[in-house]
Design a protein around this nucleic acid. Structure first.
Length: 287
DNA sequence: ATGGTCGGCAACCGA
């Protein structure tokens, strides 16, 4: 297959933009800045997380795979750094959180009853925008029960959104969706037809959950491939070769598509501390 | 690359 060799730092990187947004805690450009990050353990990623917040000052950061039960969640260092935080997790696996400048309102831990599903979903409202933060099951293998669980989870979310999110509501659905929607959203589409994150049933399940309601905001602005948010750590040099996947997404309802000003994948935090396998995705909206 | 590396947590599971 043709290898898409895109230098990670070139397009859509923060470095290419004028640096005028660094003073004060609130973005001086007056935009609503929303971000998402799969931390793969929030405790292991605390330095990179706090550095990033200090530098980027988003209004809200959605975090997935916190991998910590609520009693062990590192609430104090986050609050001492000046951020509000709500979270829900379980021991060792999954777990989601919102870090925000102002407290979120109407926070709800989930629509499911089981602990695992609850640890994959959190919602709240910020500045009149309803936010959904999900960690979609990875699926393990397409012939496994875990894959069926993934498809079911996406089908259940579709129902939930159908009931709770009218298209006129300003809303964002973000997180680790664990699905690359099209061939340009992963480095090796031909070799991953049967991968649980690219298999046609997973793609269709996410498309179905999105249909008529949710727009992939990064793809709305950036039409070329080669921009990824995840690189599998098990493949040596995956990051350097840009052998990645765009599976972390920020989706918006029509009002938020209209308000979208900019969106980018931040490659700069890598190397600051221990590297992680996912990186930050950001979107800015008019208020 | 039919591989390998992390993180959690204490033997392997999950990504």
């Amino acid at each position: 297959m043709p290898k898409v060799k895109t230098p990670r730092s070139k397009p859509v990187s923060r470095a290419a933009k004028p640096k005028a947004k660094s003073a004060g805690k609130t973005s001086p450009n007056g935009l609503l800045k929303i971000a998402t990050f799969n931390a793969n353990s929030i405790r292991a990623r605390m330095p990179i997380l706090l550095n990033w917040l200090k530098k980027e000052k988003p209004d809200v950061l959605a975090v997935q795979e916190t991998k910590v039960q609520d009693s062990e969640f590192p609430k104090e260092p986050i609050e001492q750094a000046g951020w509000n935080v709500v979270f829900h997790g379980q021991k060792g696996y999954n777990g989601v959180a919102f870090l925000s400048q102002k407290p979120l309102e109407k926070v709800d831990m989930g629509f499911y009853k089981q602990a695992e599903e609850q640890a994959r979903f959190i919602t709240g409202e910020y500045a009149g925008v309803r936010l959904f933060n999900t960690y979609i099951p990875q699926g393990y293998a397409i012939d496994s029960e875990k894959y069926q669980y993934k498809l079911r989870y996406l089908a259940d979310l579709k129902k939930y959104f159908g009931k709770n999110v009218p298209n006129t509501l300003p809303a964002l659905w973000m997180g680790d969706l664990n699905v690359a929607l099209t061939e340009i959203d992963l480095n090796n589409p031909k070799g991953n037809q049967d991968h649980p994150c690219f298999h046609i049933d997973a793609r269709n399940a996410l498309l179905e959950a999105m249909r008529g309601k949710w727009t992939d905001l990064f793809r709305e602005k950036v039409k070329e491939g080669g921009h990824y948010t995840f690189w599998d750590m098990r493949f040596p040099g995956a990051f350097e070769r840009n052998a990645g996947w765009r599976i972390d997404l920020i989706l918006g309802t029509p009002p938020m598509v209209g308000r979208l000003k900019d969106t980018w994948i931040d490659t700069k935090p890598r190397g600051m501390e221990k590297p992680s396998d996912h990186t930050f995705l950001v979107a800015e909206f008019s208020k």
